[in-house]
Simulated scan of single mutants.
Amino acid sequence: MTIEATAPHAGVHRRLRKKAAENVGLNSAAGHLLLVLLSLVCLFPVYWMVATSLRPANAIFESSLWPSSMSLDNYIYALNAIPILRMLGNTLLIAVVVTIIQLFTGLLAAYAFARWRFPFDKLVYTGVALTWLVPFQVVMIPNYLLVAKLGLLDSITALILPHFASALAILLLAQAMRSFPREVIEAARMDGARSWRILWEVMMPNLRGTIASLAILIFISTWNEYFWPLLLSRTAENTVVQIGIQMFMTAEGNQWGPLMAASTMASLPVLIIYVVLQRQVIQSFMKSGIR
């Protein structure tokens, strides 16, 4: 009787497990299909940009997915019309310098907030956090007046100057340092290490993942900066590639071929960074808490 009573229950359990596995498989397949469709939607504008940049002038408005004929004339025209290589160099220089400076100042400030106690430290930390909520466009005019008084208009220095510190860098690094094991820091202090050595030789090597993610986020954000260079720049030689792209948009009409060629050249470095460092890029957006 026991065997006869147990056998049907075992069969029912097997059928339920099989059905559950089938449901999981269907849900997984549906999820992957949705992700593929969303990926195609996201990648299609990039593909259309590249395809349009390769179309000759007489076929620029073709609606076919694949160009009927390909030409590099748009790239040649873009390179001759504006100093785009100089602009790309300026953009790369600004992005690299801003990334290094913001990481350096962020590490120093974050260590102070995470490991030191001083009067009104929480108030100062709250003030830094609140500055992150203020859009840069709000302080553009005061910064412009300051740069003008310093005589730095239309210069690479002026494009870097307002970005010496980042509230985002300070907040992320401070949170990472607060979760750092205190035992390790105390052991370093017992060995005679002071704060400077603890920061650079103990904490920083163990925060490489966070620092790398933050560096990628700062670099991409600086590379895509548009409004501040638009306000300061006067000559094409001292501006960034985003302003160069805008030069192909005039009141007489948009030069779509060269515009897409310049956009492709401007997007290529960031796309390469994303392909090479995809995991770190995703982690940087997750840790920053923004899109």
Rank of each mutant, 00 (worst) to 15 (best):
N23A: 13
L123Y: 11
Q102Y: 05
I60D: 09
I198L: 14
I220S: 06
W66A: 06
L103M: 06
A129Y: 01
I3W: 09
A236V: 06
D191F: 11
N74W: 03
P142V: 06
P258E: 04
A7V: 15
T91I: 01
I76C: 03
N74G: 09
A112P: 01
L159S: 04
Y75C: 00
L268R: 06
V98H: 00
P142H: 08
F180R: 06
I101W: 09
S166M: 12
P8Y: 03
M265K: 08
I198R: 14
F285N: 06
V24C: 11
V184H: 11
A110L: 11
V98N: 08
G192V: 13
Y274W: 11
F164C: 07
Q242W: 00
I3F: 14
Q278A: 05
S166T: 10
R194A: 15
K287I: 02
W66F: 15
T210S: 11
P83Q: 11
F120C: 15
Y144A: 07
L26N: 12
G192S: 10
L65R: 00
N254H: 01
L271C: 08
V12N: 01
A78E: 04
I272Y: 09
R189A: 08
A57P: 00
F248Y: 06
P56G: 11
F61H: 14
K149S: 14
W132M: 15
D121S: 14
M249C: 04
S166F: 12
M260G: 05
W228C: 12
N238I: 01
W256D: 08
I272A: 10
M190W: 00
E237Q: 13
